[in-house]
Amino acid sequence: MTADVGAQLRKGVVESCVLGLLAREPMYGWQLSEHLTRAGLIASIGTLYPVLGRLRDRGLVAAFERATGTGPVRKYYRLTPTGTAELARFQDAWGPFTAAVGAMLADASDASPHGGDA
């Protein structure tokens, strides 16, 4: 896979991955970025904040502040009811989508002169 294809795939799913992480529990930006960078979905925390801004603008996440008890107040993000519904729509589409893509790629591999028993 070329870097361009990988970047486009990541860009296409990163918002849904943020929604999925926030469905588990509210998180602050650094927590989210740790999960997403570890998975290779974003390059750094700096690329996360524009995503969070878009999600907030669309009403899918909301921000709130929470005292840490040991340091400064942190801004946390949580899923809104609209975000929960959007995540459910994505999950409903994602399974069949990945199954169809996987089947097509497997079929292409089998038919390829370099793959299968041809």
Rank of each mutant, 00 (worst) to 15 (best):
L60R: 05
D117A: 09
G40D: 09
G29M: 05
G69D: 09
T37M: 05
D57H: 08
A118V: 14
Y76F: 15
T68Q: 14
D117Y: 10
G53A: 12
G20C: 03
D110K: 09
H35G: 02
E25T: 15
G83N: 02
S112D: 12
L41R: 00
V18G: 03
A118W: 08
L32I: 05
L36E: 00
P113T: 06
S44Y: 05
T98F: 11
I45L: 03
T70S: 13
R78F: 04
Y77I: 00
E15C: 06
M27Y: 09
D107M: 08
R38Y: 07
H35E: 13
L21T: 02
A43R: 14
L36P: 00
A43S: 10
A88H: 12
G116T: 15
T98L: 14
I42Y: 00
T70R: 15
A118S: 10
G116V: 15
G29I: 02
G20R: 10
G102I: 06
E25M: 12
R58M: 09
R54F: 01
R24S: 08
A88Y: 05
A99G: 07
L36V: 04
L52T: 04
G69S: 11
G40K: 07
A3E: 15
R38V: 04
V14A: 01
A118Q: 11
A106D: 15
D4G: 04
P81W: 06
M104T: 08
P81F: 06
L9K: 07
V14I: 08
L79F: 06
G69R: 05
A118C: 06
R54E: 02
L105G: 11
G20H: 10
L36A: 07
G46C: 01
A39S: 14
A39D: 07
I45K: 04
P72M: 11
D107Y: 06
G53N: 12
S33F: 01
A43Q: 11
S33V: 02
R10F: 05
W30Y: 13
P26I: 11
G71I: 07
D57E: 14
P26E: 15
L36K: 08
F97P: 02
A106N: 11
T98P: 02
S112H: 11
L32S: 02
R38W: 05
E34M: 12
E86S: 03
K11L: 12
T68F: 09
V13R: 03
W94T: 07
R54D: 02
V61S: 03
